[in-house]
Amino acid sequence: MLAHRGLAVSAPENSLLAFQHAVELGIDHVETDVHASRDGHAIVAHDDDLSRVGGVAARVDALTAAQLSRVDLGGGHHVPTLVEALDAFPETRFNIDLKSEAAIAPTVEAIRVTGAEHRVLLTSFSEQRRREALRLLPGVATSASGPRFAAALLASVVRATPLVRRALRGLHAVQIPERAIGLRTATPSRIRAFHAAGVEVHVWTINDPADMSRLLALGVDGIVTDRADLALAVIAERS
């Protein structure tokens, strides 16, 4: 299970407390997002501005890391840097979505200075961002960008196995919604095709226990969820 922005039931999303709540439950994979601050630090945040999570009408890239550290997300919890998050949870695996081109270099630097290369997976909807991150950090795990997955999905429609494999070559996972470009993504035949191409299948964002159980029964390898607590109960019941 991948805890989507941590476990934010009683903590601000993408905060150190949200990650802590997930880790304390026994979750060892968390999903998060990264932007760049004005002074070039990798900042853990989903949105490009702070209006929704912090009540501040300012863009993340318009503030320094020090200024961002003073934004109260609730209960005194702040907007963390990626270095803080990786340092705070040294045994946890981080699935990191690169939200902007400016975030690439500081994210790579944060991973390097914390020695986290072996426990991160970098992803982006942008193939250009994914490729640039991989160029700077050779060998790091990555999942399919939007264009790469679209090509694989369309190839799976006509059961063109070699084309599915070509579209997913060099990747470690596809991380997908249940529907994309008007097609169901997590059917038994498509899951088999993606597995045959050598990638794991992670489906997002699944919060209903019945849906979690159904997808696990189909053979998906991971569920990205806001409710890691419910997901653990589903796994316990299935086992």
Rank of each mutant, 00 (worst) to 15 (best):
A3V: 03
R5S: 03
R5V: 02
L25H: 08
V30F: 05
V34I: 15
R38L: 15
H41P: 02
V44P: 01
A45W: 10
A45Q: 14
D48P: 03
R52N: 05
V53Y: 07
G55F: 11
A58V: 10
V60N: 14
D61Q: 09
R70K: 14
G76Y: 01
H77F: 15
V79H: 06
T81N: 02
V83K: 03
D87F: 01
E91M: 06
R93C: 15
F94H: 07
L98F: 09
K99M: 09
E101Y: 14
P106D: 08
V108C: 00
R112H: 11
V113N: 02
V113K: 07
G115I: 00
R119G: 05
L121A: 08
L121G: 00
T123N: 14
S124W: 05
E127T: 14
R129C: 05
R131P: 00
S145C: 10
P147G: 08
A152E: 04
A155C: 10
A155S: 13
A160E: 14
T161W: 11
R166C: 09
R179M: 14
R184C: 02
H195R: 06
V199T: 01
V199D: 06
T205P: 09
N207H: 04
N207S: 08
P209T: 00
L216G: 12
G219H: 09
D221E: 04
G222C: 03
G222D: 02
L232W: 04
S239Y: 03
